[in-house]
Nucleic acid binder design. Structure first.
Lengths: 217, 217
DNA sequence: TTCGTCATGTGACAACTTGTCATTATACGC
DNA sequence: GCGTATAATGACAAGTTGTCACATGACGAA
């Protein structure tokens, strides 16, 4: 988390810093991004940066957190809209988020995020099946566990539902990561194809991949 | 790939280098590992390192490649043993690989690999659904597409089987990554629990997560 | 106004990186 | 014994990060 001083900054200065940080993490993936560039761009001295943030990842995850919050709100809303129908909500959200990731104003930033997101970092963002402080990463998954309609789901405990949600989220990130990888290799797949893949994965997850002997229909 | 000079090195020196590289990537995750430490440990001058390798990731992926090869061989063998039964083979391989990852001599190295493996790097290792050079990362997935028994699988094309395999592999890595994350947070889960989770995920993938209305049993 | 105190701003600095390159050493064929 | 290609070497430039002693505010009390 940014230090208190950061939040006491005059709006103009704070926004200048954030903008510079976005620019740098858009220019280069986390490992290659440099604090030097951010402060040069924002026009603040080096010492000040460390007055506001712990280090590079502190800014980075602050930016990510902002993105998470909006997505999280959208997800909750969608679950309600679909009266707790997990897969209907997921299909909806995936579509929406992908449009955001691919066409939205921050698309190139997200690209760096997804391609170079490791499991350690992902754990800081995506919902974690663990006791969580009231607000933050765990909030969404707890909301989901509480509001998902399980009557038609083959899960038998909170833990199992946690696992399922965790898996679906991971699957989503993986697939988006795959899309960006292809993009950066010039072997771009279309957004439609990306969505088709996700739909297929969801379908498998719902109905399984194994043919039941003699389906009665 | 290491440069030709590297492979012409006297065995003793080459092994010393590899050993030092393993030590460094065991000590620290990729981003924090330093070439300086490797050469200090191996006792070779800086310039020589660059005679053998392109850069840090060149050594790193060389090490990973060695691990991939052995796992790959095991996977193929297991598919044959199970006469192309995808899920039986996967269950087998997962169990074996996990024991390797958790108890094997390279466990701490793998830990760093999995926790800090991003999607971009993963693409270099895990099977990619794309036309592939005869040998390497794509070899396994092509072998699988060719040898998996599809008669009981709900897949209708090579592309779909690719996708399925891709997803299962990703799911595996994600779950192992999760295990290591918990480990590093002190909230360790047991190996048995890890295996149970994977088994559950495979089960869902086979039979689906949605209750068919009125199962006839 | 003058002082004290606490929060901020600042940039020079040490301690590391990495990749290069001119130079030296070695091996091998003739 | 000589020439040439291949390999070894370490000083170096150019960059990075985090720190710290000090300067500059701001604001209330005397």
């Amino acid at each position: 988390m940014p230090k208190p001083t950061f939040f006491r900054l005059p709006d103009e200065k704070r926004e200048r810093l954030i903008k510079a940080a976005y620019a740098e993490f858009t220019r280069a993936p986390f490992a290659e991004a440099s604090i030097s560039n951010i402060i040069k761009d924002a026009g603040i001295p080096r010492g000040s940066f460390y007055q506001y943030f712990e280090d590079k990842s502190d800014v980075f995850f602050y930016l990510l957190d902002q993105m998470r919050e909006s997505t999280q709100a959208w997800m909750k809303k969608t679950i309600d809209t679909h009266h707790g129908d997990l897969y209907a909500a997921l299909a909806d959200v995936f579509d929406h988020v992908i449009d955001e990731l691919v066409d939205g104003p921050y698309a190139p930033f997200y690209r760096n995020v997804f391609m170079y997101m490791d499991f350690h970092s992902a754990a800081k963002i995506s919902p974690t099946p663990a006791p969580q402080p009231p607000h933050g990463k765990g909030e969404l998954i707890n909301y989901m566990v509480a509001h998902i309609d399980r009557s038609r789901l083959n899960v038998h405990s909170d833990a199992e539902l946690h696992l399922l949600i965790h898996m679906v989220m991971g699957m989503f990130m993986q697939t988006v990561g795959y899309y960006y990888n292809r993009l950066s290799q010039g072997e771009q797949i279309s957004v439609a194809e990306l969505k088709r893949r996700l739909a297929q994965l969801l379908e498998w997850l719902q109905n399984g991949t194994v043919n039941k002997e003699e389906r009665h229909d």
